[in-house]
């Protein structure tokens, strides 16, 4: 790990963009929310210093909404592994970086995911302010980038930036940039500053209490049923959740045969577990809502992933039309006597 001083984020961003295609959160012309877009010459300078949590997490770069797994050309099955060009994601926030690490482990054996992931370098930015609905400190996913979660990390210190290298690939990208080494003091200061930023986040006792209740099986089945009534099975939460990874697959006819495509699925759909016989182990909406939150907050998954399946980004709360996003659900769970 090495640390340098950076005059501005643009200095680093433009240097990196000259080497590889670079994606960074930006406002599309017709949107009030930032999204992951390629940096191009006519992109106006954006206020990347502010917490800019894109509407979508970065998972689509590695686990796209749709992708072809193999082709059947009439005689045999041929695997269709992606051959992605090297790329850089610039300005990934800690919650999304933790989710990428989670999925890196989940998709360890998946050659499609791994091909895309290995072609991508991650540049993280420490959040200096809470974002709306975010609660990363409660689930150990921020606000500053965790060790080993990105190739490069940027951290604002007054009128300049601290640039920390976390991998040799990240460090290699800096070649050609004339950077001064940062003093040890800057790194120490960064460490001591994180609790102060975390303290600015609104109280999340409902999340803590909710996690406890889920793990002690203290949520009444009736409450899950009531919240199940509010689930429209729209899959907004599972699409936007940075750790959600369920998929289905189907065959599509092509010119000389068929191709197998996989696409995102959602455990909130009523037929998600339905078998050919008609047997459905999760036929009730309440069961499916319970499943979703169990998967995000059960201690069982900490054994495997070292963290919860929720990284505190708060996107589900923003998108859920049935008002059963994370804050709404956890408030109701924690308020149960």
């Amino acid at each position: 790990m090495r640390a340098f001083l950076l005059e501005s984020l643009e200095q680093l961003r433009d240097h990196l963009a000259a080497q590889r295609p670079l994606f960074t959160p930006q406002f599309a012309a017709d949107s009030s929310e930032p999204s992951w877009l390629p940096l191009s010459h006519n992109t106006p300078s954006v206020a990347i210093e502010q917490p800019l949590l894109p509407a979508y997490p970065a998972k689509q770069f590695f686990f796209p909404e749709r992708e072809i797994l193999f082709r059947f050309d009439g005689t045999d099955f041929k695997e269709t592994l992606p051959k992605p060009a090297p790329q850089i994601l610039f300005g990934v926030r800690s919650c999304d970086l933790c989710a990428i690490a989670y999925q890196d482990q989940f998709f360890q054996q998946d050659p499609y995911y791994q091909a895309r992931r290995k072609a991508t370098l991650l540049v993280g930015i420490d959040c200096q302010l809470p974002c709306e609905g975010g609660f990363c400190p409660t689930v150990d996913a921020g606000p500053f980038v965790r060790d080993g979660m990105a190739d490069l990390v940027c951290h604002q210190q007054g009128d300049h930036w601290l640039l920390i290298t976390q991998t040799s690939e990240g460090e290699a990208l800096l070649e050609g940039l004339d950077l001064k080494a940062a003093a040890e003091e800057g790194i120490t200061q960064r460490r001591s500053q994180e609790p102060q930023v975390a303290a600015q986040f609104p109280s999340a006792t409902h999340i803590e209490r909710g996690i406890q209740r889920i793990n002690q099986s203290q949520v009444p089945a009736e409450l899950w049923q009531t919240m199940g009534l509010q689930c429209l099975s729209c899959s907004g939460c599972t699409s936007l959740c940075p750790t959600c990874s369920c998929f289905t697959s189907y065959d599509r006819p092509v010119d000389d045969g068929f191709e197998r495509e996989r696409c995102w699925d959602s455990c909130l759909y009523d037929a998600f577990q339905r078998e050919a016989s008609g047997h459905n182990p999760s036929a009730a909406a309440g069961q499916r809502v319970e499943r979703f939150w169990f998967h995000k907050f059960s201690d069982e998954y900490i054994k495997t992933f070292g963290r919860y399946g929720c990284t505190g980004c708060g996107r589900c709360e923003k998108t859920c039309p049935g008002v059963i996003g994370v804050h709404s659900v956890m408030k109701r769970i924690s308020a149960t006597p």
């Binding site: 697959s249 996989r262 499943r291």
Partner: peptide, 19 residues
């Protein structure tokens, strides 16, 4: 047990039973 087993490698999520 019978569950809807799509991928066979623990990825697609359909055959969950608790954790």
């Amino acid at each position: 047990l019978e569950r809807r087993m799509h991928c066979g490698v623990g990825e697609c999520g359909h055959c969950y039973l608790g954790s």
